[in-house]
Amino acid sequence: MAARSNDAAVRIEGLGMVYPGGVRALAGIDLEVREGEFLAVLGLSGSGKSTLLRCINRLIKPTEGRVFIFGREATALRGAELRALRRQVAMIFQQFNLVKRHTVLANVLSGALGRSALLPSLALTFPAEEQQRALGCLDRVGLGDRAASRADALSGGQQQRVAIARALMQEPQLILADEPVASLDPALRHSVMRHIEVLNRDEGLTVLCSLHDIDLVARYATRLVALRDGRLVWDGTPAEFDRTTFKEIYGEEAEPASNTGL
C-alpha cells in the first residue's frame, strides 16, 4: 500500500455547492474523516448526500470551500493531476453504472484505465497481468465464473459486486459509495455491504457511504454524519443515534421503520 502522510483521509472545509440553476445543495460543510473509518452519511433524498460524495472526487466542482484527500487539495487540481488523484478514490453508485454491453471482465478492467496506456485501452486491450488482476478481483466478490458474461445479463446484486470489483481493480485508498444498496432487493443488501465491509476492515480502506437504512448504518458504520437541507446536522457513532436524533434529521413527521429497533 502507498505511503501516507499523517493527514486525515478526507478533510472538508466550508464546502458549499450551488448548482447553475441557482439551487443550493450544500452549505458550510466542515468534516474530517480519519483513515480507516467507515463513515455513513445519512439524510433524506435531496439533502445533499450525493453532491457531497461527488464533490470529493470532483465529479462535481464545488462552488465554495476546499476538499483535501490525504493532504492534497482536490479542489485545486486540474487535468492530469486531478485524474491521478481520482485513481486513489474509487466510487460505487446506486445504479451500478456498469458498461452494460461490455463483458463483466471488461468492466472490471476499466477500473485500471487511470494507469493504462491510452491507445491499447481505446482498443479495449489490457496487459496480461492486469487481466489476471481483474480475474482476481472478480474472484474476491465471488463472480470468477461470470467473467465472460455480458454485464447486463447479471442480476442487480451481482452487477453491484462487479462494480465493487471494478473499484478494487482501481487499487484505491478511499471508497465513496453512493447509496450502494438502495436499488437492490432488501434480501441482497447484506451480500453487497459485506464486501464493502471487508475492504474497510481487512484492507484498511477508508469508506464514505451514503445510506438511508438505519439498520445497515448500525451494522456496518463506525461513525455517522447526517445532512439536512445541505447542512451537516449530526456527527457521532451509531451507538449514540436514537429516536430524537432520528427526528432531528428526518423531521417531526418521520417514523423509523418498525424493524430498526429504535
Binding site: N57, L59, R83, A84, L85, R86, R87, V89, A90, M91, F93, Q95, F96, N97, L98, V99, K100, S110, G111, A112, L113, G114, R115, S116, L118, S121, L122, A163, R166, Q170, L176
Partner: peptide
C-alpha cells in the same frame, strides 16, 4: 450519464 461518471471516477482521460 451513469457509466460516464463511473469511468471518470476511475481517473480515466477524456478519450477513455
Amino acid at each position: 450519464p451513469g457509466p460516464m461518471d463511473a469511468i471518470t471516477a476511475t481517473g480515466a482521460s477524456t478519450l477513455q
